[in-house]
Design a protein around this nucleic acid. Structure first.
Length: 917
RNA sequence: AGGCGCGUAGCUCAGGGGUAGAGCGCUACCUUGACACGGUAGAGGUCGGCGGUUCGAAACCGCCCGUGCCUACCA
């Protein structure tokens, strides 16, 4: 490979499609069933078949992909199973719209034909999102793509339904449910979105049939006057003095000829409204409960479209909101309306179509959740399942401990049809995994299948085991269940996570996963939730185009701090596009400098301080990335990589060894530096690969002397080399107090610290050069004074590097004292603490005395401030008595260093004054 | 009404009992043979407020203020 093959800047478009295809086709994503490796498995949260890739998917898939690639490289047999869910209501809505364009509705089309049309649509345009996941780089095992309506999964659904029914955990009955008058189906509590709305409180007078001396009527307050036509009672609190004696009396319901009782119930608030509340059991959740307690009749007053029904007489056929207006008007005309107040209320609407839901009494199927919830709560309490971040466990517990039965029937056609048959003769219900020929109660053949289908989440709840072949006892289940981790968004903890846990424990006797990682919510740059209606959505696909998929993925990862929302902006992604470009050009640089190189191994004997430093930094980065990914600290891992690649490898090591690589310092240095840079860079690409799979796989192919592999995913993740790194023992932590904490755990901490010292000297000279306006091309003379012989030795050994990066023509290293310095020398100091080096840059003729004086004075002020505070601390007896000895010692050294610095600065300022006059 | 989270540089955010950090932006200088999607050097912060614990608090605890979200049957 020659350097000319790499363009001057990174063009993501050129390579991404190719790699997405290679990963999918190479088979590396498909695990082995006879592997000796430990397994790691995840199921993808199945996106809706109607869906398109949005930023939330992008984040979640990216993080899972990081885990999957990382685990593969760590030697795990990884299964990451992808899939789609059939999204009952949403999909049905799509097809209904299509049909409506043809001037038809689903009833005209008929059930069978309708379902056929859904399948046809699914084959043609459903599941676009899967290709978008591939475009994102998702390394799922695409050979195992599952769909909730697949035959296998449908079998699992039926099996579960039958078993739950036979155990009495599924029942059918008349209960109040949330009804969507547009979708024509029941919704579970979770599928209703509540929002605060501005409404009114109408005060309506209900006259007593037999007026009492003091009380002629009761006034009720209601937000829904139209439901009065279905009222079954008026309730007051038995403790309410205002209504003593009225309890048990009868009221005349205005606008009707019905009579309703006044009942007493503790749940009625004394403060709200008038203290008297109308009870409509068929159209309100509370009223339904109360109706059951008091055996009140439940009168339905609306049809499936939420239009008033025949029960309502003259209002029949009117929409509920139109009826409200008319009823209010008539009440007013008849003198029953006392007053209207403005009132804020929580209004529920359908999560799919935003139509205001109508609580309605209806015959539905329910799952009895309490018995399933108990073990599911315990699993999390016992730590069998772990939420990350842990805080979400409380959310889970709150919900689970107050869980209500789950309405699972939906009056739509697209979904898993309930496997229950009703007998026309005896009314019995037959529930079976196989279509029954006759009623199991009366043995007649006059049976008809229940028309309802199941809530989509019912099938999603089985996802972790139904996708692995359950109810068959498959190898996949043995190897990959329970799955290792589930990554998802907090807003489906109830919808999905909790239900998977209940079902997994029930049918597999084991939790569906060990870790639940709850990722952040992505918002726009202003912190607003992204939504189509706000128009503030960031389209991931557009970002791929603009900045490259890797840059986008890396941005999501580095922002994915636990427990905080992500505010995503273009600038941030652009910054990481630049990072990709940096990596690209680093590769170009390396390729230009390793031509003709053989091998690519690191020869221990030829390593110098710079080499050992970067090898040490490499090992620390390996450890940081590994630790972070293992604990879902994607942001920490990404930050560590960014720092290492840009600020350590590029900013320092590459600059240090430029002359070495050019051969200016002899063939040994050239070979050594080549070996090190290639070895380090090779590992860098591997470390980056889970985050930036495209660019890393592409660049890896250009490196010399490497074993060819299809993808880095199939290579081994770098290890923190024992040669350069070890864990610090407790004893060492207490004894060794290196100046630089970041090399604390290095075996070469002496040499790594040496490098940091050299870097400090270079920074110090650069600072002097800039502050004193020394032209960039002008080489300076440099004098370093250090009391410590070892420090002097370090500086001498690295003379070449100092001269190179500080742009110095000469370097004199010497002890304090001796011949006087040139009067015009600018002063700097490298490395505070015990190893302090005085740096002098003689600037004959070009030093501006005033500028230098003010520069030094500023530094002097800072040093004095600091030394004062340290001195104060040290002089406190409590401090030296109670603070740990190493802290005290450190502070002492710091003070010595600061005092020296002050002395040198003062001397330098004096010297300048002397020169001036 | 309850619960959870957040408040650190102009902006977006890490960190976390012992010297205040990054990215972007800003200022100055630099097209030097990887990279201007770049380099070097800077400026910029009493870590929301008040108390408490501590030798020491930005960090731990309590209260308050601001802010965001989730849950809830006051009709």
């Amino acid at each position: 490979m020659s350097k000319t093959e790499l363009s001057k800047s990174y063009e993501p478009k050129d390579i991404e499609e190719k790699w997405a295809r290679i990963w999918t086709e190479s088979g590396v994503n498909t695990p082995e069933l006879d592997s000796k490796k430990p397994s790691f498995s995840m199921v993808i949260p199945p996106p809706n078949i109607t869906g398109a890739l949005h930023i939330g998917h992008a984040l979640n898939v990216t993080l899972q992909d990081v885990l999957a690639r990382y685990k593969r490289m760590k030697g795990f047999n990884v299964l990451w199973l992808p899939g789609i869910d059939h999204a009952g209501i949403a999909t049905q809505n799509v097809i209904e719209k299509q049909i409506a364009e043809e001037g038809l509705d689903r009833h005209k089309v008929g059930r069978d034909e309708f379902v056929k049309r859904v399948w046809r649509w699914k084959e043609e345009s459903g599941g676009i999102i899967i290709n978008q996941f591939k475009r994102l780089g998702a390394s799922c095992d695409w050979t195992r793509l599952r769909f909730t309506m697949d035959e296998g999964l449908s079998r699992a659904v039926r099996e579960v339904f039958v078993r739950l029914y036979s155990e009495g955990l599924i029942y059918r009955g008349d209960y109040i449910i949330n009804w969507c008058p547009r979708c024509h189906t029941a919704l579970s509590d979770l599928e209703v979105q509540t929002e605060e709305k501005e409404g009114s409180l109408w005060y309506i007078e209900y006259p007593l049939v037999n007026p009492m001396p003091k009380i002629k009527s009761l006034t009720v307050a209601t937000t829904r006057p139209e439901t009065m036509l279905g009222d079954a009672a008026v309730a007051v609190n038995p403790a309410d003095g205002r209504y003593k004696g009225v309890i048990g009396k009868t009221l005349r319901l205005p606008l009707t000829d019905r009579q309703i009782p006044v009942i007493a119930d503790d749940s009625v608030s004394l403060e709200f409204g008038t203290g008297a509340v109308k009870i409509t059991p068929a159209h309100d959740f509370n009223d339904f409960e109360m109706g059951s307690r008091h055996n009140l009749p439940a009168i339905k007053i609306m049809d499936v479209n939420a239009r008033m029904n025949e029960e309502t007489g003259e209002f029949a056929g009117m929409d509920r909101f139109a009826a409200r207006k008319k009823i209010v008007a008539e009440l007013e005309a008849a003198g029953f309306l006392n007053k209207i107040e403005k009132h804020k209320l929580m209004l529920g609407s359908c999560y799919r179509c935003s139509t205001v839901v109508e609580p309605t009494l209806s015959k539905q199927w329910f799952v009895k959740t309490a018995p399933l919830a108990a073990p599911a709560i315990k699993a999390v309490e016992d730590g069998v399942i772990r939420f990350v971040p842990k805080g979400w466990e409380n959310t889970y517990f709150d919900w689970m401990r107050n869980i209500r039965d789950w309405c699972i029937s939906r009056q739509i056609w697209w979904g898993h049809r309930i496997p229950a048959w009703h007998c026309a003769d005896c009314g019995g219900i037959t529930v079976s995994t196989k279509d029954p020929p006759k009623c199991e109660k009366c043995a007649c053949a006059n049976i008809e299948r229940d028309p309802d289908v199941l809530d989509t989440w019912f099938s999603s709840a089985l996802w972790p085991f139904s996708t692995l072949g359950w109810p068959d006892e498959t190898e996949e289940l043995k190897i990959f269940y329970p799955t290792s981790a589930l990554s998802t968004s907090f807003d489906i903890i109830f919808f999905w996570v909790a239900r998977m846990i209940m079902m997994g424990l029930k049918f597999m006797d084991a939790p569906p996963f060990k870790d639940v990682y709850i990722h952040a919510l992505v918002r726009d740059a202003q912190g607003q939730k992204m939504s189509k209606s706000k128009g503030n959505v960031i389209d991931p696909l557009l970002m791929f185009e603009q900045y490259g998929t890797d840059a986008f993925r890396f941005t999501l990862a580095i922002l994915a701090a636990q427990g905080r929302d992500i505010k995503l902006s273009d600038e941030r992604i652009a910054g990481n596009r630049n990072f990709c470009n940096k990596i690209w050009n680093l590769t170009r640089f390396i390729l230009m400098n390793v031509e003709g190189m053989s091998g690519g191994s690191v020869d221990e004997s030829g390593l110098n301080t710079a080499d050992k430093w970067i090898l040490t930094r490499r090992s620390i980065c390996v450890l940081e990335v590994s630790e972070a990914v293992e604990s879902y600290g994607f942001d920490e891992a990404a930050r560590s990589l960014y720092r290492f690649v840009w600020h350590e490898l590029c900013d320092w090591y590459v600059e240090l060894v430029k002359l070495d690589l050019r051969g200016d310092n002899g063939p040994e240095r050239k070979t050594a530096a080549q070996g090190v840079i290639v070895a380090v860079f090779k590992d860098t690409l591997k470390l980056l690969h889970p985050f930036m799979p495209f660019i890393t796989d592409e660049l890896y192919t250009y490196l010399p002397g490497l074993q060819k592999t299809v993808t880095l995913m199939a290579t081994e993740f770098p290890k923190a080399d024992e040669m350069y790194f070890y864990e610090t023992t407790e004893m060492e932590k207490n004894v060794i107090q290196p100046v630089y904490r970041n090399v604390l755990r290095s075996k070469h901490d002496k040499e790594a610290a040496d490098m940091e010292l050299v870097m400090d000297v270079i920074r110090s000279v650069r600072n002097i050069r800039t502050e004193m306006n020394v032209a960039l091309g002008a080489a300076v003379e440099l004098v370093c004074i250090a009391p410590d012989a070892a420090v002097r030795d370090t500086l001498k050994r690295n003379e070449g590097y100092i001269k190179l990066l500080a742009k110095a023509a000469s370097l004199i290293v010497r002890e304090p004292g001796g011949s006087p310095l040139p009067k015009s020398a600018a002063f700097g100091r490298a490395s505070e603490g015990g190893r302090g080096v005085e740096v002098y840059v003689p600037l004959e003729g070009c030093i501006d005395l005033d500028v230098e004086t003010s520069r030094l004075s500023k530094e002097l002020d800072k040093a004095r401030l600091e030394s004062d505070s340290v001195e104060k601390r040290l002089s406190s007896e409590a401090f030296s008595a109670k603070a740990p000895p190493d802290v005290v010692e450190k502070e002492r050294e710091r003070l010595i260093g600061l005092r020296e610095k002050i002395a040198k600065l003062t001397a330098s300022i004096e010297r300048l004054k002397g020169m001036k006059g």
